[in-house]
Design a binder for these strands. Sequence first.
RNA 1: GGAGAGGUGGCCGAGCGGUCGAAGGCGCUCGCCUGCUAAGCGAGUAGGGGGUUAAUAAGCCUCCUCGAGGGUUCAAAUCCCUCCCUCUCCGCCA
Length: 417
Amino acid sequence: MIDIRWIRERPAELKDALIRRNMDPAIVDVLVRLDEERRAIRTLAEDKRAEQKALGREIAKLEGDERERALEQASKLSEDVSSLTTEADAADAIFLARFAPLPNPPHESVPMGDGEEDNVEISRFGDPTSFEFEPKDHLELGTGIIDTERGAKVSGARFGYLLGDAVFMEFALVRFALDRLSAAGFTPVVPPVLVREEALFGTGFFPDDDNQVYQIPADDLYLVGTSEVPLAAYHADEILAEADLPLRYAGFSTCFRREAGAAGRDTRGILRVHQFDKVEMFSFCDPDKSWEEHEFLFSQEESLIQELGIPYRVVNVCTGDLGASAAKKYDVEAWMPAQQKFREITSCSNTTDYQARRLKVRFKGEKGNQLVHTLNGTAVAVGRMLIAIMENNQRADGTVAVPEALVPYTGFEVFAG
RNA sequence: GGAGAGGUGGCCGAGCGGUCGAAGGCGCUCGCCUGCUAAGCGAGUAGGGGGUUAAUAAGCCUCCUCGAGGGUUCAAAUCCCUCCCUCUCCGCCA
């Protein structure tokens, strides 16, 4: 949710922001009017309520006829208050239904664009891997350690089993990432993966993306698609100490995604699956420092991938491809030799105060209580990183070289599918 | 899963239909005082919305919030219902 002052004080700027996101700015004029109306009605309701409360205090002191007459009057007031309050609540609801979905205005450095194809490449690391033989994809390389056939038999399409050395690779990647992040001041976290609706609303996944989320109706819970959700909600309704900022967490969790609307896309292998494990960075920081913090998180992200030696490029995600909550987002796209393409492997967003406002995460600063800014970034998405390592580090004999940085964690230097 | 107890301000804790956003204590902030420290004295100290204002300065007015949501009543922290959470005991379980 954005700051309501955009509506009251900077409607023209808000219109510009909406235009940049390819949205109709006319909504702003509607919201300005709805906001004025709801405040007018609320004032009426509150005045009436104040009157009622004052009379109520009188009644306590009165006796006999005087009391009877006052009671009669109070009864009438009570009805007025009740109907005005109902009206005011309705006006609030109408306003909020239109206001809450407004996306975070993009940062000035975000390129304009309609979709993924307009993302702007801003840097590259390494060169696309070249081979003296025909490179295989991760499924061919991992016939014995990645089993999507039996995954489909047991759970359906887009599920898989990791076995043997793939499992040791997973735990190596996770421990590697946690070690690096822990050294950089992040607190490792294993959060719940089942959350209440409020956590999804607070992080902006609801109502927009609710078809991407698995539901557990019997218990009114939802499986998270990323640990960003439980990490962001961790400090919901709290007032943090300014001295504690930034609060940085590295969450490890399984992630569940329905991938609705992705039918037919990336059906081979484990690039796009319903369940994968991920280490995610999350930061609560001072609003004046969130752009620095964004660069900091991103530098962590890059250094992990660099240490693993995967060629990649960085894109600045354009306005049309930015989620509602992000004001700016960098994607890292790793080189995937089998596809001869760069594919998204991590991403890093500054959601400014968009989530903090919904989740009510504040800090006590010199200017009183203020909303923090929240940021998130992928450290390691295990499945995709595993693909990137296997495909880029494969050798003519079909074995895969473990990145040097990972060897202390795997205990082996080479593995075979 | 069964039985019971309970959820009040940063913390502890009183209040159980009106004068209560809430006694008292602790903590914290500011000031006073005392060679320093400690102690002592005084004042202040929940969050959010709306209005007033040049102002997201102060002040003032007002509404909402005593786990959440409904209800009863002229009036609810206090009474009733539903839900959530915590604790104790029993059962089960990794």
